[in-house]
Amino acid sequence: MTFHEVFQHIVRFMKKDPTGRYRLIFGTDSQIHPTYTRFITGIVIHCESKGAWACIRKVVVPRKMTNLHERISYETTLTEEVVSMFTEDKKNQLINIVLPNIYKGSSFTIEGHIDIGANSQNKTRMFVNEMVGRMESLGIEPKIKPESFVASSYANRFTK
């Protein structure tokens, strides 16, 4: 699908219920294979208690990316690339769907899910501040494990 088609799916999904509580969520995960590394970015529009619509973007790097920092950084870069396609104009189009219904409980947030964790057992904990800062600099709400389900669950299933 083109970006235009993805965006139109999101618009149609939100217009079905303009009073909904929406979360536009992006997240990337990766898997090292014998001769390449596969990266999957999930794009999800979720309406609280009403379901979701989702799609993926796949990127393959023709080598094993064994350096953890390089791989986590590239996952974040791929998420940033997709987020950047949602220009201020595109975000405003989505906000304007729910805006007339704010006083009826509607809402719209944008989240960046990062496949890293802060607990002491997680090898990625040393990258949390860096990657969270990158998401915040885009003006989106960062989420890490265990809340980063688009990266750690949805995108993960397509990396295999």
Rank of each mutant, 00 (worst) to 15 (best):
E111G: 05
V82F: 13
I110Q: 08
L99A: 15
N101M: 08
V150L: 07
H113T: 09
N129H: 00
R134K: 08
H113K: 08
K91D: 00
G112D: 14
E136W: 13
S137D: 09
I102E: 08
L138N: 06
S120M: 11
I102T: 14
I102G: 09
E130M: 00
E80L: 01
K90S: 03
K123H: 14
Q93A: 06
Q121C: 13
N92D: 03
I102S: 09
S106V: 05
K145V: 06
E81F: 07
S137T: 08
S137H: 11
K91T: 05
Q93Y: 03
G112S: 15
E88V: 13
T87S: 14
V98I: 15
M85E: 15
F149N: 13
V83T: 06
E80N: 02
K90H: 13
S148D: 12
Y103G: 05
S137R: 14
E141D: 10
N96P: 05
P100M: 10
N96L: 08
S107G: 05
N129G: 02
N92L: 04
S153Q: 15
N119E: 04
G139N: 08
V128Y: 03
I116C: 08
N119P: 00
T109M: 09
K145H: 01
M126F: 09
V83Q: 01
I114F: 06
S107I: 04
V83R: 00
R134G: 00
N129F: 01
K104E: 04
I114P: 05
I95N: 04
F86A: 13
I116Q: 02
T87K: 01
S107C: 04
G105L: 05
I116M: 04
Q121M: 12
V98R: 09
R134Y: 05
V128E: 01
V150R: 02
T87V: 07
K123Y: 13
S153H: 11
N129L: 03
S152Q: 11
S153Y: 15
I116N: 00
T109H: 13
V132I: 03
E81H: 05
M135D: 07
G133A: 04
L94D: 04
M131L: 01
I116E: 02
E88Y: 07
E111F: 12
N119M: 09
V98S: 11
F108T: 11
